[in-house]
Simulated scan of single mutants.
Amino acid sequence: MIQRTIYLVAFTLLFAACKEEEKVTSWTYSETISLKAINPIGLTSTEQGIWLSDGDRNRLVLVDGDGKVVQAFDSLDRPMHIASKDNSIYVPTYGNDKILKIDGDRVQEIVIPDSLDAPAGVDIRGNEMAIADFYNHRVLYSTDGKDFLSVGKQGKKDGEFYYPTDVQITDDAIWVADAYNNRVQIFDKSGKFVKIIGAEARMNAATGIYVTEKELMVTDFESERVLVFDHDGNMKQELRKGVTKPTDVLIYKGDLYIANYRNGSMVIYKRN
Rank of each mutant, 00 (worst) to 15 (best):
113 P>T: 00
103 D>G: 09
169 I>N: 04
111 V>S: 08
163 Y>M: 08
87 N>M: 06
106 R>W: 00
96 N>G: 03
122 V>Y: 05
100 L>Y: 02
129 M>I: 07
93 T>D: 13
80 M>K: 10
92 P>F: 09
94 Y>D: 06
140 L>K: 00
108 Q>W: 01
109 E>R: 11
109 E>N: 10
111 V>Y: 00
80 M>L: 12
176 V>K: 07
136 N>R: 06
130 A>P: 13
173 A>N: 07
80 M>N: 08
157 K>V: 05
95 G>M: 06
159 G>Y: 00
158 D>E: 13
123 D>N: 13
141 Y>F: 15
146 K>R: 14
128 E>M: 13
94 Y>V: 04
80 M>R: 12
175 W>T: 04
165 T>Y: 05
167 V>G: 08
177 A>L: 04
89 I>L: 15
174 I>M: 11
133 D>E: 14
117 D>E: 09
101 K>Q: 07
103 D>E: 15
176 V>A: 10
98 K>C: 12
156 K>C: 01
91 V>S: 14
168 Q>R: 08
127 N>L: 15
114 D>N: 12
135 Y>M: 13
165 T>I: 05
109 E>W: 12
156 K>A: 07
171 D>G: 02
134 F>I: 00
141 Y>M: 10
149 L>G: 05
93 T>R: 03
156 K>W: 01
132 A>M: 10
173 A>R: 08
116 L>A: 02
133 D>C: 14
166 D>G: 00
137 H>N: 13
78 R>G: 01
130 A>W: 12
105 D>Y: 04
176 V>P: 05
110 I>R: 06
127 N>G: 15
170 T>I: 01
100 L>K: 08
86 D>R: 02
126 G>M: 11
114 D>K: 12
131 I>P: 08
159 G>A: 08
136 N>L: 12
157 K>H: 12
103 D>S: 15
144 D>F: 09
146 K>C: 03
132 A>E: 10
174 I>P: 04
93 T>V: 15
177 A>F: 02
149 L>S: 10
92 P>N: 10
109 E>M: 13
131 I>R: 06
